[in-house]
């Protein structure tokens, strides 16, 4: 029985070998990442679906160009996604120059290029979701509650040292992920 969500290493290895199941694994692992990036950059669901489809199809067709020595699979996919989003935005601009004009006064839920901020937020969310449960709970409370690490330890009935180490390793992991994906953050 295969694991529900494959590890990045498994996906990367399968993909590198051109394993017939690699595309499915890639999609299981990164479908939500790619789709969320597209949704947030493009707004519309239909366009986001189109971009997601294009990204995985191009990733499959271009699988020979993925070089694990040069960066992570996630980073490679994020790059493809950004390019497809840009293509989509450019074609929209051609379609409707009025929008571009209006965009000057709009706060950027609908940016003209996929913004680094959007990419970073989605990458962070993806990595948080990948943390082991206890650590994810600690990180979520550390980020989004008013609790100090001592309070988190008390509430979760975890040793203080464990909470501190979860926090340290969690932050490091998020940071490495942002760097591995070669996202400017």
């Amino acid at each position: 029985m295969p694991v529900e969500v494959p590890s990045d290493e498994d996906v990367s290895a399968a993909f590198g070998k051109g394993d017939p199941d690699a595309l499915r694994l890639l999609y299981v692992r990164f479908g939500a990442l790619v789709y969320s990036l597209a949704r947030r950059s493009l707004g519309g669901q239909a366009d986001a679906e189109d971009v997601t489809q294009q990204v995985f199809v191009s990733a499959w067709r271009g699988r020979d160009t993925f070089d694990p020595e040069r960066g992570s699979l996630a980073g490679w996919l994020v790059t493809i996604t950004r390019n497809r989003i840009s293509d989509m935005l450019r074609s929209r601009q051609r379609d409707d120059r009025v929008l571009l004009h209006m965009a000057a006064n709009v706060t950027t839920e609908d940016p003209a290029v996929p913004s680094d901020q959007v990419v970073n937020r989605v990458v962070v969310a993806d990595e948080l979701a990948r943390l082991p449960e206890a650590q994810r709970l600690v990180m979520t409370l550390a980020f989004y509650s008013d609790l100090t690490h001592e309070q988190i330890a008390e509430v979760l009935q975890m040793p203080l040292g464990t909470v501190k180490s979860h926090i340290r390793r969690g932050l490091q992991r998020l940071r490495s992920r942002l760097e591995a994906d070669r996202v400017a953050y």
Partner: peptide
């Protein structure tokens, strides 16, 4: 600190799953 700011910026950011039809098209 930048990682923390990013994570906190708009609160928890949920990822969205694409509809099943997307995989079918791929």
């Amino acid at each position: 600190t930048r990682v923390v700011e990013l994570a906190r910026r708009d609160g928890p950011t949920p990822l969205e799953e694409p509809p099943a039809s997307v995989w079918e098209r791929i």
